[in-house]
Simulated assay, not measured.
Amino acid sequence: METKHNTQTVTSADGTTIAFERIGQGPALILVDGAMCHRASGPARPLAQELADSFTVYTYDRRGRGESGHTASYAPEHELEDLAALIEEAGAPVLLYGISSGAALALAAVQSGLAVSRLAVYEPPFIVDDTRPPIPTDYTERIQEFLATGRPGKAIGYFMRKGVNLPGAMVAMMRFMPGWSGMKEVARTLPYDAAFVTDFERGRPLPEGQWDSIKVPTLVADGAKSPAWIRNGATDLARVLPHAERRTLPGQTHMVKPQALAPVLKGFFR
Rank of each mutant, 00 (worst) to 15 (best):
residue 11 T to W: 06
residue 106 A to P: 10
residue 174 M to N: 07
residue 30 I to A: 12
residue 195 A to N: 10
residue 179 G to M: 12
residue 234 A to Y: 00
residue 200 F to N: 09
residue 163 G to C: 12
residue 157 G to A: 14
residue 238 A to V: 00
residue 69 G to A: 14
residue 100 S to H: 10
residue 98 G to A: 14
residue 197 V to D: 01
residue 110 V to R: 00
residue 19 A to Q: 05
residue 265 L to P: 09
residue 92 A to T: 10
residue 92 A to C: 10
residue 119 L to A: 00
residue 57 V to R: 02
residue 65 R to F: 09
residue 40 A to K: 11
residue 168 G to W: 13
residue 241 L to C: 08
residue 176 F to Y: 15
residue 213 S to D: 14
residue 3 T to L: 13
residue 96 L to K: 07
residue 50 E to Y: 09
residue 117 S to C: 00
residue 26 G to S: 00
residue 182 G to R: 07
residue 133 P to Q: 11
residue 100 S to Q: 05
residue 254 H to I: 07
residue 165 N to E: 00
residue 249 L to F: 10
residue 170 M to E: 15
residue 30 I to M: 10
residue 52 A to P: 06
residue 246 R to G: 02
residue 144 Q to A: 13
residue 20 F to Q: 09
residue 9 T to K: 13
residue 78 H to L: 15
residue 236 D to N: 15
residue 136 P to M: 00
residue 228 A to C: 14
residue 25 Q to F: 09
residue 160 M to K: 04
residue 52 A to F: 09
residue 246 R to D: 08
residue 132 R to M: 09
residue 90 A to F: 04
residue 9 T to G: 11
residue 118 R to L: 05
residue 76 P to D: 06
residue 17 T to N: 08
residue 63 R to L: 09
residue 131 T to G: 12
residue 81 E to D: 15
residue 156 I to W: 12
residue 21 E to M: 13
residue 151 R to M: 11
residue 258 P to L: 06
residue 25 Q to Y: 05
residue 76 P to C: 01
residue 263 P to L: 12
residue 16 T to C: 14
residue 32 V to K: 03
residue 56 T to N: 08
residue 80 L to Y: 00
residue 166 L to F: 15
residue 22 R to T: 15
residue 107 L to H: 01
residue 63 R to W: 05
residue 73 S to C: 08
residue 67 E to V: 13
residue 122 Y to I: 09
residue 240 V to T: 09
residue 28 A to S: 14
residue 232 N to T: 02
residue 35 A to Q: 05
residue 37 C to W: 03
residue 121 V to P: 09
residue 247 R to T: 15
residue 224 A to Q: 11
residue 254 H to R: 12
residue 223 G to N: 00
residue 121 V to Q: 13
residue 216 V to W: 03
residue 212 D to E: 06
residue 130 D to I: 08
residue 269 F to C: 14
residue 8 Q to E: 14
residue 12 S to D: 11
residue 228 A to T: 14
residue 35 A to P: 07
residue 166 L to E: 14
residue 249 L to C: 11
residue 265 L to H: 05
residue 15 G to W: 12
residue 201 E to L: 07
residue 35 A to E: 15
residue 89 E to I: 00
residue 158 Y to R: 01
residue 90 A to Q: 01
residue 220 V to K: 09
residue 124 P to Q: 05
residue 56 T to I: 06
residue 261 L to Y: 14
residue 154 K to L: 11
residue 246 R to F: 13
residue 185 E to M: 13
residue 174 M to G: 15
residue 112 S to C: 11
residue 111 Q to G: 11
residue 247 R to G: 06
residue 98 G to P: 06
residue 119 L to H: 00
residue 58 Y to L: 05
residue 25 Q to A: 08
residue 49 Q to N: 14
residue 250 P to K: 07
residue 218 T to G: 04
